[in-house]
């Protein structure tokens, strides 16, 4: 029997103020896979991630993580179930040092040496900047810090919102290497990404959003091979964006 998904969203509606943003999102994230959420700007991708984290309250529908309903839970309680969230703005604490940023993400304030070594291998530049104020890092370095911080303690699910946004191509390459290493380690990731090259390289499964709904789900391989489907889904989105 197939393993049940680690995370499921069923008929999720979210309002922000008087705006109805999500119109019944259905999504499943399988354990050990990278699921990519694609869609135009304003399609509801970030709202979906924030709804999972409890940062926006779900007005209707269910969100289950590892078999537990989490839609009504507070954000800290959701995070403590083993979900790490890397927001679009990276959420780096500029006034704290790199070390302090990492320390905050550990349950007790102490590092597990093996894990720390693994993160530093993935992002060696952060070791050199260990005592540097995070606000002085470049955009790419901040993104590495944000992702490194998300994996410094054991997590069951990483939620990453547009990690390549605003990064120079060389930094995107480094980021891809680091995310591929996580994929090889069978880390469960829910990734929102506008860069289709990055999404294609990482994704096992894909869901495409438009106007607050999931309009397509399938394997990334199928979408990558089917130019007509790409054109229909992403072209449709681009047209509606214009």
């Amino acid at each position: 029997m197939a393993e049940p998904p680690l995370l499921t969203l069923a008929g999720v509606h979210t309002h922000i103020g008087r705006y109805h943003i999500l119109h019944g999102v259905d999504l499943a994230v399988a354990a050990g896979e990278v699921s990519v959420l694609l869609g135009r700007n304003g399609a509801g991708k970030t709202t979906t991630l924030r709804s999972i984290m409890g940062l926006w309250r779900v007005s209707r529908g269910a969100i289950d993580f590892a078999g537990q309903p989490i839609a009504a839970r507070a954000t800290p309680d959701i995070a403590r179930l083993g979900i790490a969230y890397v927001p679009e703005n990276m959420g780096v604490f500029s006034g704290l040092t790199v070390a302090e940023n990492f320390r905050l993400a550990t349950p007790s304030g102490r590092f597990e040496p093996q894990r720390l070594a693994q993160v530093m291998r993935a992002f060696p530049v952060l070791e050199q900047k260990w005592q540097v104020r995070a606000g002085t890092l470049s955009g790419g370095q901040k993104q590495m810090l944000a992702i490194g911080r998300a994996i410094i303690a054991e997590r069951r699910l990483l939620i990453i919102d547009e990690p390549s946004k605003g990064l120079a191509p060389v930094m995107v390459g480094q980021l891809l290497d680091a995310l591929l290493a996580l994929k090889r380690a069978r880390t469960t990731i829910l990734l929102v990404e506008q860069n289709f090259f990055l999404a294609r390289a990482l994704g096992d499964r894909v869901a495409v959003m438009d106007d607050g709904r999931i309009v397509h789900t399938g394997t990334m391989a199928a979408l990558a091979e089917d130019v007509a489907l790409q054109s229909r889904l992403l072209g449709l989105s681009l047209e509606s964006h214009q």
Binding site: L55, F93, L96
Partner: peptide, 13 residues
């Protein structure tokens, strides 16, 4: 950290 970004501190648990 919370002075800077409350939401992120909550997202860290």
């Amino acid at each position: 950290a919370a002075v800077e970004n409350r939401e992120m501190v909550e997202s860290l648990g």
